[in-house]
């Protein structure tokens, strides 16, 4: 059995869906961050697979930039968590309800 484009795209869709469900269902902000990263990485897998399929480098170059953006996003996100934890002593999203109607 050879592994083709469809298998890679299926895997990437599964990873993306896992990440998305994690963001929706998990309560711990750090785990939600990991799920966000999983969604980004799923997109990079799709990009690399498509890039190979089309025989062009565009998608591969895209991935380099996405990895950089993902790192920056984690830096900002963790900084926000630290700022929040100092004030509220919690990282559980369901305890963050100071702002509501």
């Amino acid at each position: 059995m050879t592994i083709g484009l469809n298998d890679y795209i299926t895997l990437s869709v599964i990873l993306f869906a896992l990440g998305f469900l994690g963001v929706l269902l998990r309560k711990n902000t750090l785990v939600i961050y990991m799920c966000l990263e999983l969604m980004l990485v799923a997109s990079t897998l799709a990009l690399v697979a498509f890039s190979r399929f089309h025989g062009m480098l565009d998608g591969n170059v895209f991935v380099f930039f996405i990895l950089t953006v993902a790192a920056a996003e984690v830096a900002v996100g963790l900084a926000i968590i630290v700022a929040l934890f100092r004030r509220r002593q919690t990282v559980q999203v369901d305890e963050l309800n100071a702002l509501r109607d």
Binding site: T44, G59, L84, V93
Partner: peptide, 25 residues
Amino acid sequence: ESAEAALKYFLQGGVSAALLLFGFS
């Protein structure tokens, strides 16, 4: 409240960025 607002903005913004990226791919 400021940090809480930032976290909510970040989480929803992160999901939307990931969706956009997957759409782009």
